[in-house]
Simulated scan of single mutants.
Amino acid sequence: MTYLSRIPIAPLRTGARKLLRSPQAMHAAVLGAVAYHPEPGRTLWRLDADNPHRPYLYVLTQPQPDWTAFVEQAGWNIDDAHAKPAVASYKPLLARLQAGQEYAFRLTASPVMTTKRPELLNPTQIARQKKDLESGKAKVRLSHRVAHRTTAAQITWLTERIPQYGFELLPIPNTADPAPGIYPFTDTEATSDPIPDIRIAHHTTHAFTKNVTTNNGTRTGGTTKVTIATATYEGSLRVTDPVILARTLITGIGRSKAYGCGLLTLAPPTAQTP
Rank of each mutant, 00 (worst) to 15 (best):
L4P: 01
P11F: 12
L12W: 13
G15F: 12
A25D: 01
A25H: 07
A28R: 08
A29P: 07
H37T: 11
P38Q: 07
G41L: 04
G41E: 06
T43F: 06
T43E: 05
R46H: 10
P52E: 01
P52L: 03
Y58N: 04
L60Y: 00
L60I: 07
W67K: 02
E72P: 02
A74Q: 06
W76I: 09
I78R: 13
I78A: 11
I78G: 03
A83K: 09
A83E: 01
A83G: 04
A83C: 08
K84W: 12
A86I: 14
S89I: 02
R106G: 15
R106D: 12
T114G: 02
K116Q: 12
R117E: 14
R117H: 09
P118Q: 04
L120N: 10
L120K: 13
T124H: 10
Q125D: 04
I126M: 13
A127W: 02
Q129T: 11
K130F: 01
S135P: 00
G136R: 02
K137M: 05
A138P: 01
A138M: 01
H148L: 05
T150K: 13
T150S: 15
A152V: 13
A153M: 09
Q154V: 01
Q154N: 14
T156K: 08
T156Y: 03
P171M: 11
I172T: 07
I172Q: 07
N174Q: 09
T175D: 14
A176R: 13
P178H: 06
G181T: 07
P184M: 04
F185P: 01
T188V: 12
E189F: 03
T191S: 15
S192K: 11
I195F: 00
R199L: 08
R199M: 06
R199N: 10
T204Y: 00
T204I: 06
H206R: 11
A207K: 10
A207W: 01
N216E: 14
G221N: 05
T224D: 03
T224M: 12
K225I: 12
V226W: 00
A229R: 14
A231Y: 02
T232S: 09
Y233E: 10
E234T: 03
V239H: 03
T240R: 07
I244R: 15
R247F: 02
I250V: 15
I250R: 11
T251N: 14
I253N: 06
K257P: 12
A258D: 10
G260K: 07
G260C: 10
T270V: 05
A271F: 07
